[in-house]
């Protein structure tokens, strides 16, 4: 899955501007996370058509890069996420960042994970048989 990473200058109303642009393009935000530092923010979003959305945003002078991430279903029980992460750690997967969202249709919890090494993650996912979106 490709995530859109959007650079946000630390300027008043910039986040609202970008989100409004996405609304204008009729893009449904399936998941969203905002990383912020003292000087700028990085908005990370999951949308249905990442490439097309990126192109439209670039046309409007928004700085976007596409980042490969993993969207995984989290087992629907207490300790489900912990169990999954522990399994990944055993397979030497290093998580760079992660955020969660709930899919409305099935009330299904999901996480977006960015890992350091794609190949290691690939093998890990197959080995422990995770459900990848």
């Amino acid at each position: 899955m490709l995530q859109l990473s959007i650079f946000l200058e630390n300027a008043k109303g910039r986040l609202a501007e970008v989100i409004s642009l996405l609304a204008e393009f009729n893009v449904n935000l399936r998941a969203l996370s905002l990383a912020d530092t003292k000087d700028y923010g990085v908005l990370r979003i999951i949308v249905d058509e990442p490439e097309a959305t990126t192109e439209k945003l670039r046309e409007r002078k928004v700085v976007v890069s596409l980042t490969p991430v993993w969207v995984l279903k989290v087992p629907d029980r207490a300790g489900g996420l912990a169990e999954m992460l522990n399994q990944l750690v055993k397979q030497d997967v290093v998580v760079e960042y992660m955020y969660a969202f709930v899919e409305k249709e099935h009330e299904q919890a999901q996480v977006v994970i960015r890992v350091k090494d794609q190949d290691i993650m690939e093998k890990a996912v197959q080995k422990i048989n995770l459900t990848v979106k």
């Binding site: 700085v63 890069s65 760079e96």
Partner: peptide, 18 residues
């Protein structure tokens, strides 16, 4: 100015560069 090739998704990397 940052640009599209500045790999800003990794906040730590960007902060390091800054």
């Amino acid at each position: 100015e940052v640009n599209e090739t500045t790999f800003f998704d990794e906040v730590r990397e960007l902060e390091g560069r800054q």
